[in-house]
Amino acid sequence: MSTPDTATDTATENTALVTEFYTRAFNEGEPEAAARVALGDTYIQHNPGAPDGAEAFIGYVHHMRGRFPELQLQVKRTVASGDLVVTHSRFHLTPGDRGLAAADIWRVRDGRIVEHWDVIQEVPEQAANSNTMF
């Protein structure tokens, strides 16, 4: 009889939590519900343009969806290790745009997201190579 791999189970649960949180907030426009289910009492933000806390995250999503009501997020891949989940995503602000490539790092503690870092860049019209960003 094999023993369950607790680290794998935790990574899978953390990945599901982050992915559901991220897509529910942005794609479904439900940041309050997403935050209520997923964010910890403390939410530390490392993006220098965003304040800490759940209310700031909720406000940011509403601001972005107000400017870009058809905004869509596609999580292309995830990597999880320990208490960290990394998402590699594509944001489309408007239908048909080239979009933005985002790498987000999320720290999960006790089943709640407590910390976030991100790196975002525009998908260029032309690239110096034939590889895609996704």
Rank of each mutant, 00 (worst) to 15 (best):
M1H: 06
S2P: 13
T3D: 13
T3M: 10
P4D: 00
T6N: 13
A11Y: 00
A11T: 03
T12V: 12
N14Q: 03
T15G: 00
L17A: 09
V18N: 01
T19R: 13
E20K: 11
Y22H: 09
R24Q: 10
A25I: 06
N27K: 15
E28W: 03
G29I: 03
G29N: 12
E30V: 02
E32K: 12
E32F: 10
A33L: 14
A33R: 15
A33S: 15
A34K: 08
A34F: 11
R36K: 14
A38I: 06
G40Q: 00
D41T: 11
T42N: 07
I44E: 06
Q45L: 07
H46P: 05
P48C: 13
G49Q: 11
A50D: 07
D52I: 11
D52T: 08
D52K: 01
A56H: 08
A56R: 09
H63D: 14
H63S: 12
M64P: 01
G66C: 07
R67K: 14
Q72D: 09
L73P: 05
Q74F: 11
V75N: 07
K76F: 10
R77C: 09
T78H: 05
T78F: 02
A80Y: 01
S81V: 06
S81M: 01
L84I: 07
V85L: 01
H88A: 07
H88D: 00
S89L: 02
H92Y: 10
H92G: 11
L93Y: 13
L93K: 12
T94N: 15
P95Y: 11
D97W: 10
G99W: 11
G99C: 07
L100Y: 03
L100C: 03
A101D: 05
A101H: 12
A102L: 14
A103S: 14
D104M: 03
D104G: 07
W106A: 01
R107M: 01
V108P: 00
I113P: 01
V114D: 03
V114Y: 04
E115S: 04
H116P: 01
H116A: 04
V119H: 14
V119L: 14
V119W: 04
I120M: 13
I120L: 15
V123D: 04
P124K: 02
E125K: 14
E125F: 12
A127R: 15
A128R: 12
S130F: 09
N131F: 12
N131A: 09
M133I: 05
M133S: 10
M133R: 08
F134H: 08
F134Q: 07
